[in-house]
Simulated assay, not measured.
Amino acid sequence: MYQFVKEGKPVRKWDPLFNEIFKNGDKIQMTVEETQKGVKVTETSKDEKVLALKTFQYILVTLVPVLVLSLVIPALAQAPFVFEVRHDHLIGSCRGELFLSNDQAVFKSEKKEHSRTWKYGDIQQVELHADHISILTYEDRKVEFGKDRAFQFDIRSGTVTEGLLQLLDDKLSRPVISSILPSEDRVVYRLPVRHRKLLNDTQGALEIGESAVVYRSDSEDDSRVWWYDDLLSIGSTGPFQLRLGVLEKTGGEYGEEKNYVFDVKDRLDPAAYDFIWEKINRPKIER
């Protein structure tokens, strides 16, 4: 810019402000000083009109972008996570968009009568998976004798990210059931395991970290993350078995704890067991 003004070679000719600055370029005194971080340019003028032009240019170039960013960044932070989804019914299905924002979850269906809006306080539990999202509500299903109503949305477009996990974990009073795993946590112990299930056991590893226990499974949907606040109990019947009691709705009226049972392939290190026990129980003891 210094060289352009000095040589009278206008830039941004479509901009009236720059045109005026270049017209009065001979009234601007500029000095260039080298610094450790680059160069420092000082512009001075005895002409009040030129000073006003340069002041206005400074505002446009420096302060306006900062103001715009200060408005845009919070807006981006509050922008909803949006997914194109399919929702199956007892008979048939419908398609639409699922919005998860700072204060609510909204399903906008192609069939208006199937659209729904839930404040987070009206949601019992959310399950996050790469290919679907499930929302368990406080609504009753009369055809199932008052069973809590759940809505499963199969994702057709959109990506479930760790950012969505963090948002829901912050907004919901109950833990999020998630096979989307956090990216960072220092792993203290790692246990190769088999997860015992009624059908289709899975293989993987329990990663015992400072903030959470992660089950990293070879079956993506069976992976889990449990923050220590969400773990209710730990148990073992021997050196090759580990049970984690998790705060999770199990479908029954009073079902608040779900047990995850793992076969430990290497002898269970007592220090690993004690580490989890301390994380679960020490805060309760110190209250």
Rank of each mutant, 00 (worst) to 15 (best):
K46H: 13
K27G: 14
G8R: 08
T237N: 14
K9W: 06
H129A: 14
S93M: 06
V64C: 06
K279H: 08
H129P: 00
G209S: 06
Q78E: 05
S233L: 14
R282Y: 13
D103Q: 12
T161C: 11
E34W: 01
H89N: 09
L167Q: 15
T44D: 14
L69R: 01
Y215C: 00
K37R: 12
R243M: 07
V82L: 04
K9H: 10
T202Q: 03
E286N: 14
R12I: 03
T237L: 09
F56C: 10
R149L: 12
Q241T: 04
F153A: 03
G38I: 00
T62H: 11
E253Q: 09
E207M: 06
F56P: 06
R194Q: 10
L128N: 07
K13V: 09
P65T: 02
V214G: 00
E248F: 07
K112R: 14
T250E: 13
R267P: 02
V106K: 05
H129Q: 14
L100S: 08
G235S: 13
K112H: 09
K279P: 04
T44Q: 15
V213W: 01
M1R: 06
R287M: 03
E286Y: 11
E162V: 13
D229Y: 08
T35S: 04
G204A: 06
S70H: 03
R243V: 02
V176P: 00
F240V: 05
S233P: 04
G238I: 01
S179N: 10
L53D: 07
P80I: 00
W118F: 15
L191C: 11
R190F: 02
Y120M: 06
S179A: 13
D274I: 00
V188R: 13
S70K: 04
K46D: 12
I133V: 14
P239T: 09
D266E: 15
L199A: 11
K171G: 11
N24V: 06
D148R: 15
E184D: 10
G204Q: 04
K284H: 08
D185K: 10
L206T: 02
Q57E: 15
K258G: 11
L136G: 05
V261S: 12
D154W: 15
I135E: 07
A130R: 14
C94T: 14
G158P: 01
E257M: 15
E184Q: 13
K119P: 02
A150M: 12
V66C: 09
A79N: 03
F240R: 13
K258E: 11
T202I: 01
V176K: 00
